[in-house]
Every structure is written in structure tokens, then in C-alpha cells.
Design a protein around this nucleic acid. Structure first.
Lengths: 250, 250
DNA sequence: CCATGTCGTTGATCCACGTCAAAACAGCCG
DNA sequence: CGGCTGTTTTGACGTGGATCAACGACATGG
């Protein structure tokens, strides 16, 4: 596929708390290093924060639906969001999970190409698309950042196609757990007992499986001693090496 | 997923032959309207064409391999290219087919995230990445165009995930034929007897199926009178409406 | 025009995962 | 603490597509 990256500005770095003295709500943002705001200086940040509003979602609350007019873009600051597409008969494909620092954007059309919904209670930054576009005219750094984000997503999308088209249920679950672990680490969070906040149904819809098969694959990996299922939606990666071999198709 | 589009510059338009008088090889480019070069004026085009070299590939010839250093990006000007990822045991996922006007780019890493190979004899424009980056500094229009391209690809990637994760073999084949038809139309080519230049194996690797299942699904659609299999890799969409219903999961 | 390799089609069988059903469990509130 | 509700797990069974195996249909070159 045709991924690209001309971003020389900023590499993805673990989020570190920032302490600032200005009044901007972005000043204390703990995930700025991973967001669209990463390359901005304080003055630019103030301009961006001026058009931003906060959004709070409870578990299961929709953010927007596929086909709706795409008026806003978002940045997740806390919680987990899922984005998905539906077939007319209700079959669902979750195309991604979004964590703090992740960007929820939109298609080139004037309508969203997918639905987005909170998996856990969430906090997001909302930017009206038109206003952000104006801002981008004056700040090409944002455009570069977006291209960089899009490139990363494209690489991830291809990886997911390989998973969906060619991996077994066991391999899919192993890959999924490692993906969660890696992304938690990138956010500066614990990467070993991995938080798995989403339901079996959501996982199945993400991996192209049923809940029953997801559950059975977890059980099987547990019985093989590769993982341990802990309380509170946590999973211990008891044998990370083995899990990586399974995920990679060895 | 987090797609985005801030491109107000150029909408995708059917490729029309252009007649120009300058010496630039791009002057006569028949697919310029769809490429990265679309928004450029003649003077800019000359600068871009100065760093461009032509590449010719025979059927089955590799363009580059996953993991290789990503030194160049390409634009397909004629022929069909496939891009794919492999698992260690040889399982293959074709993540895309590229036609004239399509861009073959790269990941944010310094290495390609996938392999690319000619399906038919091909002609491509090659751009050294570093030189194009320099050019982009001076021509933000190219950057905007790339973001636009990346956004479109992200939408397509999500559609493909829905297909891979949730559609039946029959629905996959129907969707595939309609995709080929639509893209041919966008290029200004015949969209009804649709050209299907790739092998059953390639189609299977794109749709997450085996060659046998691809063949059986074609036969089934033919027997249902929805399509006709013509010589020379062509397929007639005898009942486009019905095909669209099947593809959409109705 | 036939020999030869590649690709596509068809048939028979198998199995990973889906489906259907029910039990076990986990929150949650009264 | 116990009943209620939704989620996860487990079990029994069915099936769509994979696998294995011929066979037919083209292209290509001698």
C-alpha cells in the first residue's frame, strides 16, 4: 500500500506530564507528546486551545455515527474509544481502538466513514473541523503532524489486514494482546499486566471472530501457560516470547 | 479509525490526456490528474520531473521488498502493481492493487512495511525520497496532496477490514469486482466489462480466501447470471444492482 | 501444430470456527 | 446479603471455506 512519511518534526515519544504556567487547559495535558499538538510552541498551543472544547462520554455513549456530517475531530485524553463499521444485517467490524493521545479524525467526504463510541468513560478534546482547517493554513506543522499520524495508521491498517485475512484465532488473540501492551508502553503505562477494557464482543468484532472463539482462545492460551487472566480486565503476559512467536505465525 | 482530510485543493477527477509543449516527460502524462502532481503548475512540475526517473517492470518483477531500505517512492503510470505482506510460513496478504495514477509510498520507518511487485508489465515514476522531501518544503501543495491521498487510503483500508473480517466469500468477490469497476471508471477506463489482470491466487490473497474458493465463487456468480466470465481477463457485470446488493451484505 | 508449463476449475473430504444452548460468574442495587 | 442483569465461559453440534487431488484450458515456444 501507499504509505508515506515526510515528518521530520517529531517522533512518537512516551507521554510525560508537562507543567506549564499559562492558563490554557492544554498546559497540563499529559498526552500532548503523542497528539496533534506535539509540535506546537506555547503561542500556537494557545490558538489551538482557543477553538477546543472538552467532551465527556460515559461507557457505551456514541461520539458520532457513520454517515453523519463530519463537523468535528477529536483527540482522546482519557478512556478508550472504539470505531467501527456495520453491515445492513448488523455484522460489525471494529476498525480500531483509540487510547489517550490518539486522534479521531474523518474522511475526505463531508460525512464520517465510521461510527465512534466510548468503551469506558472518556474525556476528549473536540476541534471544529473548519476552525482547525483555518489554523492549519497558518501552521503547516499541524499538517505535517497529521500526515505523520495518517502514515502510522496506514501501516497499522496493513498489519490488521494481514491479521484479519491470514491469521488463526490463536494468532489473532496473541497479536491483539501484544498490540495493547505495546501501545500502553508508548503511553508510558504499564505494559505487562495489560489492561483489556473492552468486551469479548468488541474484541471479536475487531479480530473477525465470535465472542465464543475469543473466549476459547483466551482459555487455551491460559492453559498453555502463555498468559494469565487477572481480575479487573487485566491480562498477565506470562511468556511474552512465546506470545510473540504465536502472534508472528512461527 | 482516525482519518482526516484538510485538502481543499483538488478533488479526484477522471484522468484526461494532457497536451503540453514543454519538454518535460510529465507534460504528456495521462494520469496526472490523479497523482501527487495534480495540484502543481508547469514550473513546479518541471522541478518535480527533474528529480524523477522512469522505471519499467515486467510481469512478476519485484519493485521492492518489505524490510528493504525505503529510498524511493513511486507513481504508477501504466500496468498493475500488487503490494503485500508475508508471514514466516509463506501465508500472504495482498494489502492493495495499484493502477495508473496510484502512489506507492512508504512508512515512517526507514524501511518498507510491505513488498511491491508488478502484476502486469508496468511503467512507474520513481522519486528519491530525500529529494522529494526537499521539494515538499517549498511546495506545501504536495504535502496537502499526500495527506489527501493518505486519507483516502485509510477509508479504503477500513472498508477492506470490514470485508476481511465480516463478509462471506461471495460478498468478498462481489465487492472486489465492484471496486475494480469503480477504480477503472475513475481512471476514465471502461467500467463494465471490467479488466481483472491479477491471478486467482492474488485475488485470494487480497480477499483472505484460497484460489479454489475464489474460483468457486466466480462460478457461482456466473451461474446465478450476475456476472459473465469473458476471455482476456475480463468480467461482464451482467446485473450490477444484484452485485451491489451482494457486496453490501443485503 | 504439438509439447509443456502455468493457471483455473471442479470434486471429495476435513476441520477451524460459527452457531445454538446453557451454565458460571460478576457487578450492582435494594 | 441475595436477587437481577449482563457478560463470560463451556459444551455439543453444524458448516463455510480450506485442503488435497485430478483434470481442463490456455498461453508460449519450439
Amino acid at each position: 500500500m501507499r504509505v508515506f512519511d515526510f515528518d521530520r518534526v517529531s517522533k512518537l515519544s512516551p507521554a510525560v506530564p508537562r507543567e506549564r504556567t499559562e492558563a490554557s487547559p492544554c498546559a497540563a495535558c499529559t498526552v500532548r507528546g503523542m497528539t496533534i499538538c506535539a509540535p506546537l510552541d506555547n503561542q500556537e498551543l494557545a490558538q489551538v486551545s482557543a477553538i477546543m472544547t472538552s467532551v465527556e462520554l460515559t461507557s457505551g455513549e456514541p461520539l458520532f455515527d457513520e454517515g453523519e456530517e463530519a463537523g468535528n475531530v477529536y483527540n482522546v485524553t482519557s478512556g478508550t474509544v472504539k470505531v467501527y463499521k456495520l453491515l445492513p444485517d448488523g455484522r460489525r467490524q471494529v476498525t480500531g481502538f483509540l487510547f489517550p493521545g490518539d486522534f479521531v479524525g474523518l474522511a475526505r467526504q463531508e460525512t464520517y466513514a465510521f461510527s465512534a463510541e466510548a468503551v469506558t468513560p472518556c474525556l476528549l478534546c473536540r476541534f471544529p473541523r473548519s476552525k482547525l482547517e483555518n489554523l492549519m493554513q497558518r501552521m503547516p506543522k499541524i499538517e505535517q503532524r497529521l500526515l505523520n499520524i495518517a502514515s502510522n495508521e496506514l501501516v497499522a491498517a496493513q498489519e490488521q489486514m494481514l491479521l484479519l485475512g491470514r491469521k488463526t484465532a490463536r494468532e489473532k488473540i496473541a497479536s491483539f494482546l501484544l498490540m495493547l501492551s505495546k501501545r500502553a508502553r508508548q503511553r508510558g503505562q504499564a505494559d505487562d499486566p495489560v489492561m483489556v477494557p473492552m468486551s469479548r464482543t468488541d474484541i471479536g468484532d475487531y479480530l473477525g471472530l465470535t465472542t465464543e472463539t475469543v473466549s476459547r482462545s483466551f482459555t487455551q492460551l491460559k492453559q498453555d501457560g502463555v498468559i494469565q487472566l487477572l481480575p479487573n480486565h487485566q491480562v498477565k503476559l506470562a511468556q511474552r516470547e512465546a506470545l510473540e512467536d504465536i502472534a508472528g505465525g512461527f
